[in-house]
């Protein structure tokens, strides 16, 4: 069952001109249009995600992976011009055209985003439990005991000490804050979670445990995910299929182990070799 299908998704920063797309991308070797100066953060992106599947997006900084993920997660940058078409199971029309209310409803119910920066996703003055509860309360939960029980369950699922539930989030370690983000993202049983650089700023061993927790919960709940990372290890661990991006374009895609072990595109080969 196809959950999300995107075609021709693009994010442009600048005035844009008719030549922007032809003059940028992998072949042109740049993501900035030489005619009008517009930065084509991503363009011509086609992809689809099935229920329960994990799609990885890798690339160096500036490759457009975060722009693409943000467009798919309905995160809006008022500076950007977003184009293309994204259809989503059970929803009529183009997801990129929805009004604020629909977007808000989708974001509190169907599609969750785990932000790269904890501060963008959590209110550090709220308790850890409060941050998770916010998702439920925004989705219309009105029974205190139900909210409480669900928050406790999510803490257990994501391996955050339940005893810390009512402490301010700012007193949590980086790994715990990341888990709170994940617990929050999963709170309303979304069909799709988008993780933007889920391990940035964490120690390697903490990274691994956070990723493992996410992977376990993701499989148990059958939630689909889009994982954006510059770290091939993260994508290798989580993703069933992987897209490789460069200069705002998808240059290669396939099963994750195939992309890692039998990379076809020159850039992917360089990327893999620079790590291994």
């Amino acid at each position: 069952m196809t959950l999300l299908e995107a075609s021709g998704v693009e994010t442009l920063y600048g005035p844009g001109c008719p030549d922007c797309r032809d003059a940028t991308g992998d072949r042109a070797g740049t993501n900035q249009c030489p005619h009008c100066g517009t930065v084509v953060a991503c363009a011509e992106a086609d992809l689809d995600v099935e229920g329960g599947e994990v799609l990885g997006i890798v690339g160096e900084s500036g490759s457009g992976k975060s722009s693409l993920a943000e467009a798919l997660a309905l995160e809006r940058d008022p500076e950007a011009t977003v184009g293309g078409e994204v259809s989503y199971a059970g929803h009529d029309g183009n997801l990129l055209d929805v009004d604020y209310q629909t977007r808000h409803d989708l974001r509190t119910g169907d599609i969750s985003l785990v932000h790269q920066h904890v501060r963008d996703g959590l209110d550090l003055e709220f308790t850890g439990g409060g941050n998770v509860a916010e998702k439920l309360l925004s989705a219309g939960w009105r029974s205190y005991e139900d909210v409480r029980a669900r928050v406790r369950e999510l803490f257990e699922e994501t391996e955050i000490p339940v005893a810390r539930m009512d402490d301010p989030t700012r007193t949590y370690s980086g790994g715990m804050q990341r888990r709170v983000q994940i617990a929050r993202a999963l709170a309303t049983d979304p069909d799709l979670v988008v993780l933007d650089e889920p391990t940035t700023g964490l120690d390697v061993s903490v990274q691994a445990r956070v990723l493992d927790t996410f992977r376990r919960v993701q499989r148990e709940e059958g939630v689909a995910a889009i994982v954006v990372s510059h770290d091939l290890g993260v994508v290798r661990l989580l993703a069933d299929r992987t897209l490789v991006m460069r200069h705002g374009r998808i240059v290669e895609s396939g099963l994750t182990d195939r992309v890692m072990e039998d990379p076809h595109h020159e850039y992917t080969q360089t990327l893999i070799n620079s790590v291994l």
Binding site: T127, G130, A133, E134, L137, S138, Y144
Partner: peptide
Amino acid sequence: GKMWVHLYENVVE
């Protein structure tokens, strides 16, 4: 949602 969190934390406390 944020106001509801305030109420939630009020009850917690």
